[in-house]
């Protein structure tokens, strides 16, 4: 069991070696030019950078993040359910009904969000 995860670890090492090696090669082979003020400034299509380079975010991004957390929780419930579903549904429909009930509750919330316009980006 642990051996399988060790394989993943080896994969990390191999990928890091490839990426690091490539970067090292580019450091050795790459041109090293003189620095200048123009080169050091952030690229803004040739103009001098204006204002703060980390603008504040629109609140819409936070809304998307919250919605994602809601549905992510649901997905967390769905995955273990999906694994046992085919076996357990042979005996009774209870496992189907329980997830249907859960999805129904979620659907009510989803329809509410939809009607409220929480899913509209340009509101």
């Amino acid at each position: 069991m642990m051996q399988e995860y060790f394989a993943a670890l080896v994969q990390v090492a191999a990928a890091a070696v490839v990426a690091g090696g490539a970067l090292a090669a580019s450091v050795i082979l790459g041109k090293i030019g003189a620095r200048s003020k123009a080169k050091d400034t952030p690229y803004e299509c040739g103009l001098n950078p204006e204002g703060n380079s980390n603008p504040r975010f629109s609140v819409k991004f936070y809304l998307i993040a919250m919605l994602f957390i809601l549905f992510d929780i649901e997905i967390v419930f769905l995955y273990p359910w999906a694994v046992v579903y085919a076996d357990m549904v042979k005996e009774s429909w209870v496992i189907f009904g329980s997830m249907a009930l859960f999805q129904l509750i979620l659907a009510v919330g989803f329809v509410y969000e939809f009607k409220k316009g929480a899913l509209d980006w340009s509101r």
């Binding site: 990426a19 090669a25 450091v27 790459g30 041109k31 400034t41």
Partner: peptide
């Protein structure tokens, strides 16, 4: 061509993450 290009890091950039981001993308 990419190997021979100069690696330009803007002066204001966060050097640490600017260096690690490509490696973290590949892994």
């Amino acid at each position: 061509k990419m190997l021979l290009k100069e690696d330009i890091v803007p002066a204001q950039a966060d050097k640490f993450f600017h260096f690690w981001a490509p490696i973290l993308a590949v892994v």
